[in-house]
């Protein structure tokens, strides 16, 4: 079962994957094994995305299949699964004035499959909400996303607000999005920028001291 499920998920075969899950549960299979297969499959999808053989469609389709499997598993999960040890926590969001979410979601997905605990604050996130999240969750890395040029200014003001709140020290801020480059990084006062999701993961791993 385990191998078949991983195969089905990696090849984006939703019907097959769901039927494997259902058959397994009917036969008294352990939901935790199913979850482990899902996690293994997502690892492979993430790797293929990082090496450039999978693209946005495979990431989104994987997310959709996982949602459905989670819904099937829910009634079968008597006890909460112990969550695996994570590499670190990342707070993520699209800055104020910008409601684009695709790039942010890709980064969230890839960070997640790479072992980070990701808290996604959503889109058009006001400065104060980032400040509150950083204060409450103490993430190692804050990832700010923005597609529009208005994000240049609100990334800068978000980072300034963190400084004002005394939360900037020890926090690594990475920015990314359509028009983001080194020039924008310097302007906003971020520690790094990611040209793509893979760069964001590489940076976050480096900061977490992981390989």
């Amino acid at each position: 079962m385990a191998h078949d499920l991983v195969e089905a998920l990696v090849h984006m075969k939703e019907k097959e994957a769901l039927s494997i899950v259902e058959v397994s549960l009917e036969g008294g299979g352990d939901p935790n094994d199913i979850l482990a297969s899902c996690s293994e499959a997502m690892q492979i999808v993430g790797e293929r995305f990082q090496e450039g053989s999978y693209f946005l469609p495979e990431l989104i389709m994987s997310g959709e299949m996982l949602k459905k499997i989670a819904a099937i598993l829910k009634p079968h999960m008597a006890t909460q699964v112990a969550s695996e040890a994570k590499l670190g926590r990342v707070v993520l969001g699209t800055v104020r004035g910008d409601i684009h979410d695709i790039g942010k979601d890709i980064v969230g997905f890839v960070l997640d499959v790479n072992g980070f605990e990701v808290t996604d604050l959503g889109i058009n996130v006001p400065e104060q909400k980032f400040v509150d999240a950083v204060r409450d969750l103490s993430p190692g890395v804050l990832a700010l996303s923005g597609f529009l040029t208005i994000a240049f200014d609100t990334m800068k003001s978000t980072i300034a607000a963190l400084e004002e709140a005394g939360l900037r020290n020890g926090l690594r801020v990475i920015i990314g999005g359509g028009q983001i480059d080194e020039t924008v990084r310097a302007f906003t006062g971020a520690d790094a920028y990611g040209a793509d999701a893979m760069a964001a993961v590489a940076y976050t791993k480096e900061m977490a001291g992981a390989k």
Binding site: T149, F152, Q179, I180, D181, T183, V184, A186, F187
Partner: peptide
């Protein structure tokens, strides 16, 4: 010409 350049260079 990159927008970042138009804004900041």
């Amino acid at each position: 010409v990159p927008l970042s350049m138009m804004h900041m260079s």
